[in-house]
Computed example of a mutant assay.
Amino acid sequence: MSQEELIVLIQKGDIKAFDKFYKDNWRPLYHMAYRSTGSVDDAKDLVQNVFISFWNNKENIEVSRFHVSYLFTSLKNGITNLYKKAEVRRHYSEETIERDPVYTVEDDYLAKELAQTLQNRVTLLPDKMQRVFVLSRYQHLSISEISQSLNIAPRTVKNQLSTALKILRTAVCIIALFYFF
């Protein structure tokens, strides 16, 4: 049976004719796909997609103008799309890795240790300074709210907060040097 006769039968929905057409044409397509991708699974998927597309568009095929090169062109387009998708995935995965650094158990431990040490240092601050710091950083009050709450001038709140941050920053730097060097 000629290829033209097979296509006419396929256009009528003949599964046996499609099966014969598939068996006659899949191997060279598979070899081309495998050579292009280096992956058995990708090659199988690409060839399968070519034949699915062929079946889905069987009514639109002009029998007199059909040539097997149609299948190879379809395969080439599938390979191109596969590489484009892989490139997009690679690009976004690299972007994600750059944005989201990998944290280890050790990093988590160090963060907890640093937070605990910082909390201990806060308790060593003078009483008034400690209250200003806690209201600002833990309870998220504004300078004017802290000023009203403690009945002190806003400028005093700013000074106390600034001094507390300097003390704590110095302590954190010393701790960081201890842990990382």
Rank of each mutant, 00 (worst) to 15 (best):
A17F: 02
H67R: 15
A86V: 04
Y70D: 02
T37K: 00
K20C: 04
V102D: 06
K23P: 03
I143L: 09
Y179P: 09
H91T: 15
Q139C: 00
F51D: 06
K12T: 09
D42Y: 07
N49M: 10
R137K: 14
R131G: 02
Y103E: 09
R90F: 06
N25P: 01
T80G: 02
T163E: 15
E98H: 09
Q139M: 02
V132N: 00
S74V: 06
Y138F: 12
L6E: 07
I10D: 01
L135C: 02
S69I: 13
A153W: 05
R169L: 05
K128V: 12
R65W: 05
Q148Y: 02
V172D: 02
C173F: 15
W55V: 01
K44L: 10
W55Q: 01
I52C: 03
K128H: 08
T117V: 06
R169W: 05
I15N: 07
I152D: 04
Y22H: 11
S162V: 00
S142T: 15
K23W: 04
D100R: 14
K16H: 14
Y103H: 15
R169Y: 11
R155S: 13
V47R: 03
L71G: 00
R137P: 01
T73V: 11
F66T: 03
N57S: 08
S136T: 06
E94W: 02
T80E: 08
Y22Q: 00
I174G: 08
I97E: 13
H67V: 12
R137I: 04
V122P: 02
Y138P: 01
Q116D: 09
Y34M: 10
D127G: 02
F181P: 05
E87K: 11
E62A: 07
S69Y: 13
W55L: 02
A171E: 12
S162E: 04
V8K: 15
I175H: 14
A33T: 05
V88I: 14
S162L: 04
I7N: 05
R89A: 07
Q139A: 03
K44Q: 15
D42H: 11
K158A: 03
A33R: 08
